[in-house]
Write a protein that binds this DNA or RNA. Structure first.
Lengths: 200, 200, 200, 200
DNA sequence: CATGAATGAGTCTTCATTCAT
DNA sequence: AATGAATGAAGACTCATTCAT
């Protein structure tokens, strides 16, 4: 008797809630973002929220998974690229471009605050693994071509690449004077220095 | 005349509470650290807390101010040093050493989550200003000696130095595999690359 | 479309809470009446209270507004009466009858204690204005007929009428021996003396 | 070894605290007046308070007892007066004059709020009894002279006199436009009307 | 006597979550 | 499926009172 579940409609609603949650988490932090506020932003009633996510934390995990999936798909699309160093540079540029959505930096901060939670930590580890798994083959290939330093294992270089991006995201939240558009060039230059053959 | 206020005793208690709050904030985040838990950690009753700080946020600001003061004093102690590049390197090592206290990284995360609050943002800006004011003369002096790159203004180099340290702190929380002792050398090398004369 | 908000149900709940609050305020005073006790009296959970009123003070203001509205409506119903002196007497009797609800006197005391609060003072001023606006035309009409003393302006007589009623309400709290039924006659006699043509 | 208690000094301190409490109770109400605030007003430490009064309520009772004592002494001083009606009028004037201390009206409100407490109720009953005991002989004497109405027993007239004063005090708190100086004449006139031989 | 630091019971208020409609 | 009213557990904060100095 009841209307059959329309998967497309269901998925759309789900994304609508995820997007609203991203907005509220970025603006208020996880603990201060109330479900009521998320629902107001999403334009739904609070009861509806719980048809799609069992807890507030579940929607946070969904945002993280979505991010990991997007990153994973980005790496999938690079599969046949020829110039490995350019892929690395493009990855950095891709992540920097993600920061054009002003919510991303705030959301990253928000996640940090609840990293003590085991499930969140697992989701972050999964996301991190996607990045590492995605970067590693390209770093290795670049190393084989002798286009990056050889004094460090590729795994370490990948971690430090991520470290640099973390710091970059952090600065965007921390100071209004840090203009991502103006600093993108500096970011790419710094990546070059990090990976470069020799230290001065 | 009765018992006079004992400033030393008062200050000791205050530091005891600040230390306990640092512990709880680092472990649970700001919003999830309850005053009750802070007091249990400090070994005091909850009422006593409010003799020393009017709100939970006040103790957070006190922690931040303490950090800014310590950094400021560190720079004061370097005043008469002769080798400016070495001061910069020492500063990075000093900040890296602060991470020997395993709470520092978690606390940094915790602060990020409430950065949206105006008073917290002000305190962070003050702390940041201390670092920039402290670093700038040494970077300028190094630049005059031609020991660092000249293609960027010293202000920008100082910001990127802080960016690098931010990322370093963040990694410590993010992954258990990141061993600060082992990575300190890589950090100093990366600082050298960031400041070095030319990009490869 | 799901369940639409039922305004009647909402209003009924609201009145239920107002009534419970009146009971507790009258019995315990404003500051000593806990929200928990109000909710227990109303038969609701404490969270429900805050769906209807944002603070404890808000429900106090609601009680006051309700009283002002009822008085205002009472005066509206007298609009076409012919004998102005009788309207005044009826008003006094109406207010005296309100004291058949044993909570009214206690509530009046309770309000007095928080009159220092600006919002409460405003609400009381509004209530007072309703009484003065309601009485004045009838006092003026009575004065024109020469049925009350002319040595005082109608405004002053209205104030002293209210003063007398205040004292009457106060006595009910102050002494158990003061029986409102028995004293109502004395009240009406005293009103006559207050308004009467000449002082002995 | 300890200094012998100096009763005069002790009594002075006691009165100092009572006076401060009167100020704070009048301004903030009983429940909102904190002991800390009372002590600040009295210029003493909070510990000292408890050398003189075991609880906050005790100092309230002391204020009430002081008032009752003063009223009692006032009546004692009238013992040999010749004109009983004049004594009654003087009593009303005396109470009206007490309102020159702007704290008295507010204090009266404050007491009302905690009248539900048994000890406070007892103290108020004692105070009321002092007034009734003080007034009654004079009303009786006046009645015997035929200078007041005879249709009501003296006890009732005494209660209604107090009722009128209650209303008068109440108005002073309730509205800033009610000026005690300007209304004192009206008060005495109304007393005359209340006690006068016949109702119009 | 005088003090004010310490205490913790008790209050208001928030908000994730449930559920009848 | 959608709603939002109802719930109550939990937390920040207040303040009367105690007591060591």
């Amino acid at each position: 008797m009841a209307r059959t579940i329309d998967p497309a409609r269901h998925q759309a609603r789900r994304l609508q809630i995820i997007d609203a949650a991203l907005t509220r988490f970025a603006h208020d932090g996880f603990d201060r973002a109330t479900i009521t506020a998320i629902c107001r932003t999403a334009g739904i009633g609070s009861g509806t929220f719980f048809h799609y996510f069992p807890t507030k934390q579940a929607v946070l995990l969904a945002v993280l998974d979505l991010g990991a999936t997007e990153t994973s798909e980005w790496f999938d699309r690079q599969r046949d690229r020829a110039d490995p160093l350019q892929v690395i540079v493009d990855y950095v540029a891709y992540q920097a471009a993600a920061l054009n959505d002003p919510r991303v930096a705030g959301f990253t901060r928000a996640v940090g605050a609840v990293m003590g939670d085991e499930e969140v930590a697992d989701a972050l580890a999964r996301e991190e693994a996607v990045v590492q798994r995605g970067l590693l083959p390209w770093i290795r290939a670049t190393a084989e071509r002798g286009e990056v330093r050889q004094d460090q294992p590729p795994e370490r270089l990948a971690v430090w690449l991520a470290l640099l991006l973390d710091g970059y995201v952090g600065r965007i939240c921390a100071s209004a004077q840090f203009d991502p558009d103006a600093e993108k060039e500096m970011l790419l230059d710094t990546v070059g220095r990090l990976l470069g053959a020799s230290s001065p």
